[in-house]
Amino acid sequence: MTDHAHHHGPAAQTASGMEQAAAIEPASGLEPAAVPGPALAEAAAPEPAPASAARPKLAVWKFASCDGCQLSLLNCEDELLSIAGAVHIAYFPEATRAVVEGPYDLSLVEGSITTPEDMRRIHEIRAQSGTLVTIGACATAGGIQALRNWADVDEFRSIVYAHPEYLSTLDTSTPIASHVDVDYELRGCPVDKRQLIEVLAAYLNGRKPRIPSYSVCVECKRKGNICVPIANGTPCLGPVTQAGCGALCPTYGRGCYGCFGPQDTTNTASLTTQLVELGMADADIVRVYRTFNAGAPEFEAAGNAVEAGGAR
């Protein structure tokens, strides 16, 4: 059992709160206004890629993760050519084996830190990155693999692997911001491709990204969704979860699973009371707080509180 809250530097949370208030500045020496390229709306007929010197160099890095967030970038089908026109994709093994040496103007980092080697590697990446943006719940909160923070890693390593002595792994899964300075954290499991494009557009234009930190409820109400816990008793984490997915699950009549982590003002104690009233057992309540953002401090504390008998 590891109290992994100590592994979270304050940066892990200030990155989501304070950093979002600031514009993402392109690396020095770049003139965003001079970056040519087609408009998103004209993505069907992109301009030929301009000279690479004029485009910021983009690198996409993977740590402990499922690759889903990187795939969100590749899933930007209609916009992908525009992205390739606006940035020079210099390092992106998920997409291409071609590698351009660093340094890089913008690094997108997927995944959490779970091995000693990754603890070292993230510092190297930070050193050769102008702007570093983490993408997804793993990189921002430790991901589903942060469940190891409540478990005995040696024990399950010995059960799962024939030769556990070959493994070098940490007892915890921690977010990138626990190890290096992060310029911006993009939430989600996986990230939302519209938000990813928005972060790229904000970076290229030297402005603040339009990424809200309010609850999923705002997205539901703006869409005209019917509130699932109120209208049919389905438990929902929406009131404590940050918007960004477009209220995907409630739109299809399901409760929110908290993929985007805690919203800026999180009253999990009050939500726990409601989950109890909707008939959830304590063990199930612990489980819903401990999913993709189990390591986010607010969800971690909420799950621990219920586990300690604080739900009723």
Binding site: A39, I197, E198, A201, N205, R207
Partner: peptide, 10 residues
Amino acid sequence: EDVSDLTGAT
């Protein structure tokens, strides 16, 4: 809320 495309053209 203001939005722009990748290049700032729109």
